[in-house]
Design a binder for these strands. Structure first.
Lengths: 237, 237
DNA sequence: CCGCGCAAAATCGTATACGATCTGTGGTGA
DNA sequence: TCACCACAGATCGTATACGATTTTGCGCGG
């Protein structure tokens, strides 16, 4: 899907596009998404067209378009004649996003698995080793970055660009919702690393499609569960 | 997701919004999507802003926005400084769409299954019976409409709006790509009806999640396979 | 006859301007 | 004191205008 869209998904590993996309709308989009992900625009805060346009040194028209893109990325909520507000850390929305991501990421991982080369598998193991090394002196940001890199390695030979795009969108959204899940649930990290190893073993062994899919899906579902348990331990009715 | 987006997804069963959405951009979007789905805008044909604006009795600004929405729905491809062209019936793209739809629809069906009431199950059986009755004097359009209705019934209690939105997008895209798959592969229809029954049996029996998901996914995958076999029997390299 | 370059037409991208709609505030009457 | 209404400010939605880029067609030279 990436190949279809005029704007490359920000954060996509294949989109190493420079900051200069030769389109003000693109620049605005990138600036806003970065601002949201870095927390410069707090959740719930309003994004006012004129103000942003002034800030970015352009007219409101490109800004407006950028905001509509953010809207369909579900990074902002929009109300007609009122404006856009940065989407909050609603646990419900987080759950939806993680669930969707588990679905598409699981499928994509399984689909790519037979095409992963030995070298890539080695690279993934190396990344996971670095993640494990990081467990002692835990750094959530670095850990999350490696986590992304790990899964990206397994997606190198994506078969279905639509699904790949969905994965990237999910990642973007997560990054926007909170800089790092592991910052909130550090206890999840060791388990995550272990599951990575299991996943790699399955791929290396040429396990059946549904086994790999189930494992990859469960991997993310576990993260979600860990998060939910931590954040809302009183959520038992 | 639907609840987050400013514009209700066209074709969504819960979006019975009248043609008057009180926004020219919305009207333009709806007009264009209908035009594409009805074949008024042939695949490959260009969508010129000024021309459409004139036709719809509005300025180019709302039309532009509508086209960008179509772009992210993957109904048109867009090139900077050139314009939008209606996406064609590329078999590759069709495969991607069907595959993605199999994924999200399968999951959604499985997730909704435990919540389907007896009445709804009955309704689904009734729809399927009407589809079976249609097999003798086959009408692809009517059959496809019932097919949509059938699956919609099983989605009544959607859990994850993001995934539901993905399903709707996939349907929209399919409708745009070709008015009806069954028009091209009529031989698939009887098998489809039979699989519907099996799916209903699984749901009624309270089958495990993964069984229902697998069945629903396979159901759509089968349609894809049937189509691929018919359209490209020489595709064996 | 074919390729190359330039100019004109077509089309998009952005800026500015104005009307429409919403939100908040202050005042008035009960 | 509280509810309600009117008005003003803020912000968005759309129209129009103009500059930027691409495409196309024509003429020239080989």
């Amino acid at each position: 899907m990436s190949t279809l869209r005029g704007a490359a998904p920000v954060g996509a590993p294949d989109a190493v596009a420079p900051a200069e996309s030769h389109s003000k709308a693109d620049r605005a989009y990138q600036a806003l998404i970065e601002g949201i992900q870095q927390g410069r625009f707090a959740p719930g805060s309003r994004l006012v067209l004129a103000q942003l346009a002034d800030e970015l040194g352009m007219s409101v028209v490109p800004v407006r378009e950028a905001i509509r893109r953010l809207q369909h990325d579900d990074l902002v909520s929009y109300e007609r004649n009122v404006g856009a507000t940065v989407v909050g850390v609603d646990p419900e929305e987080y759950r939806y996003t993680m669930e969707t991501l588990a679905l598409v990421e699981g499928f994509s991982t399984a689909q790519c698995a037979p095409l992963v080369t030995a070298a890539e598998l080695e690279r993934a193991r190396d990344i996971n080793a670095r993640m494990r090394a990081l467990l002692d002196d835990f750094d959530p940001v670095e850990f999350t970055a490696l986590n992304k890199e790990f899964h990206s390695t397994l997606f190198e030979h994506h078969q279905n660009p639509h699904i790949l795009d969905l994965v990237h969108r999910g990642w973007n959204r997560l990054t926007a919702l909170r800089s790092s899940t592991f910052a909130h649930v550090p206890g999840r990290a060791p388990q995550s690393v272990a599951e990575h190893d299991q996943l790699l073993d399955l791929i290396a062994a040429g396990a059946p499609f549904q086994d790999i899919e189930a494992a990859a899906r469960q991997h993310r579902a576990n993260t979600l569960t860990a998060y939910m348990d931590t954040m809302a331990p009183a959520d038992q009715h």
